[in-house]
């Protein structure tokens, strides 16, 4: 849940930056290829960093947050036969880790297509 929300807001932000900066491209004066290429590198990298930041926040929250810092609080909540904090530490966090990598694979591919730098 937190994931999707984060992912989509990130995407919006990337789109915003890209269109915004893209619209500003001519103000660089020259349309020469070098400048354009540098802009693509810079914007692509910024979009990547935003995505990374969002995903690493989730990574931190499920592992160090739910499983360690707040484990005692969450353990008050039962989840089927588990205590919730214990479940995050020994099961839940691992599932989220797997999901995070695949979300990254998909969203990164999208960013690369948008900037025309994908390796297919």
């Amino acid at each position: 849940m937190g994931e999707q929300k984060n992912g989509s807001s990130d995407q919006g932000a990337e789109e915003g930056i890209y269109h915004h900066e893209g619209g500003n491209l001519p103000t660089h004066g020259h349309h020469d290829e070098e400048t354009l290429k540098e802009d693509v590198v810079r914007l692509y990298w910024r979009a990547n960093l935003k995505l990374l930041g969002g995903l690493l926040v989730i990574w931190f929250v499920v592992s160090f947050g739910f499983s360690i810092l707040f484990v005692d609080v969450l353990n008050e909540i039962p989840l089927f036969g588990f205590k919730l904090g214990f479940w995050w530490a020994q099961q839940g966090a691992i599932y989220v880790f797997v999901a995070l990598i695949f979300v990254y694979v998909v969203l990164m591919k999208r960013i690369e297509r948008r900037f025309g730098v994908d390796d297919d």
């Binding site: 990374l52 995903l55 990574w59 592992s63 360690i68 020994q90 966090a93 880790f97 990598i101």
Partner: peptide, 14 residues
């Protein structure tokens, strides 16, 4: 469990 799996997120992303 956390350490030996969570490291792959860092590996894949960073």
């Amino acid at each position: 469990l956390l350490g030996w799996t969570g490291g792959y997120v860092l590996l894949a992303l960073l």
